[in-house]
Simulated scan of single mutants.
Amino acid sequence: MQDRSLVDTLAEDPRWDAFGLHDIAEGAATAALSHLGLAPDGFEISLMGCDDARIAVLNTEFRGKPKPTNVLSWPSEDRMAEDEGGTPEPPEPGEEDDPESLGDIAIAWETCEREAAQQKKPMKDHVTHLVIHATLHLMGYDHETEADAELMEGIEIAILGGLGLANPYE
């Protein structure tokens, strides 16, 4: 039984607290790690729920793109697979009282809200997908090449399906 949270959540924008970001993120990240065969109690993720203004600053600083985006992730270490389309090596879990940090995620309210409306889906489903997507980035998955994107999207679709959510790529 897990006594602590996998996701350490900071809601910089109070709309995220009212939305229930922590519980949604906890469920999404747990589903992602479990799908990969990892016990969530050996890991920790830091998540910041912010607004578009804050994520635009982060996107500029870390990616050189001076605009808001939906989600950003910073793995605690490079876990990328050596081969294109290859599966990254899973990290070793820490102890329950000293979990292995997978890294940090930031998610932006306005962009998520707008995208969910444009895609005609509940924001909860969209945020669940984005947290799964970001968690996979922390695990070394990426979508820079077609082979990498195919692998990552297939895993996302499977995890979302296990949660009863639709394929976001259709």
Score class of each variant (00 low, 15 high):
146 E>A: 15
80 M>V: 08
107 I>C: 02
41 D>G: 06
61 E>L: 14
124 K>C: 04
54 R>D: 10
23 D>T: 07
114 R>G: 00
66 P>V: 07
78 D>F: 10
148 D>S: 13
72 L>S: 08
68 P>D: 01
75 P>S: 09
101 S>C: 05
66 P>E: 12
135 T>P: 00
154 G>W: 09
102 L>A: 02
68 P>K: 08
151 L>P: 01
84 E>R: 11
99 P>D: 03
56 A>G: 12
110 E>Y: 10
74 W>T: 05
127 V>I: 15
127 V>Y: 06
34 S>N: 09
73 S>F: 07
96 E>A: 13
56 A>D: 04
80 M>L: 13
132 I>W: 03
132 I>E: 02
96 E>Q: 11
85 G>D: 04
78 D>A: 12
45 I>F: 04
63 R>W: 10
152 M>G: 00
77 E>K: 07
76 S>I: 03
60 T>F: 11
114 R>V: 06
88 P>I: 08
74 W>V: 02
154 G>K: 11
63 R>P: 00
66 P>L: 07
57 V>G: 02
119 Q>I: 03
44 E>R: 15
29 A>P: 01
82 E>K: 12
99 P>Q: 12
141 Y>P: 00
34 S>V: 08
46 S>W: 06
146 E>F: 10
115 E>M: 15
93 P>I: 10
117 A>S: 13
120 K>H: 14
70 N>G: 06
48 M>W: 12
35 H>G: 03
71 V>G: 06
46 S>P: 01
118 Q>K: 14
76 S>H: 12
24 I>Y: 02
134 A>F: 04
129 H>G: 11
105 I>L: 05
52 D>M: 06
99 P>Y: 05
119 Q>T: 09
150 E>D: 15
108 A>F: 01
111 T>N: 08
80 M>T: 14
126 H>Y: 15
28 A>P: 01
83 D>P: 00
106 A>Y: 12
126 H>T: 06
84 E>P: 07
93 P>E: 00
53 A>L: 08
79 R>Y: 10
95 E>C: 04
93 P>A: 06
99 P>W: 11
114 R>P: 00
116 A>F: 09
55 I>M: 05
154 G>R: 13
119 Q>L: 15
109 W>F: 10
45 I>Y: 08
68 P>S: 13
119 Q>E: 15
60 T>L: 14
84 E>G: 03
125 D>K: 05
65 K>F: 10
